[in-house]
Design a binder for these strands. Sequence first.
DNA 1: TAGGCCATCTGGTCCT
DNA 2: AGGACCAGATGGCCTA
Length: 190
Amino acid sequence: MDPVYSDSSSCDLFTNTDDEDSRGASPRRASSQPEQQKKRRRGRARGDGTTQVVKKNRRMKANDRERNRMHNLNDALDALRGVLPAFPDETKLTKIETLRFAHNYIWALSETIRIADLQAPLALSETIRISDLQAPVLLSPSRSPDSCSWSSSGSSSSSSPAHCASSPASPGGPEDFPLFGFRSFVPGIY
DNA sequence: TAGGCCATCTGGTCCT
DNA sequence: AGGACCAGATGGCCTA
């Protein structure tokens, strides 16, 4: 039953060398495999002794690579957390929260730029607050994604951030930029 | 204790 | 053939 060799030795190689599996964003997986085929076969791939050893070796190498890959992914996520506004309570954003928050944040910034462009002379000297924005930037203090709601008034233009966002009213406050204060959620980004 | 999040293992698929 | 990517499964940890 249990997962085979959980072989601890693993964790030592964080050597992120060659990084980035770069190869860019190749649109893999273009082929949409039939749903049914998604069933995984968990059966023992039986084999004779020698091939088993070879397979085990291959598996261990693949596990290492996969571990590294996930570590790289987590590093990237950490880097993303690093450039996002920090939360006062300094609790670490979860992965999904990080992605959603980044999504909202980018949207808010681009919206700020857009508005600044519209009212050019004024905007330069004035900080635009998220609450000034038309689109919903809704931040929920709780973690439950359910608490999200679209308060989008007036289908304002640009691409909606598909998110929930900010403490509704609560004008002023420490949040000239409310995004700093709470977590935001996107019920379903896409 | 249930539920959420996470790390890891694993096998399948695609690409080089 | 081997590596990258992906998604399902599993188990551990933590919190309400």
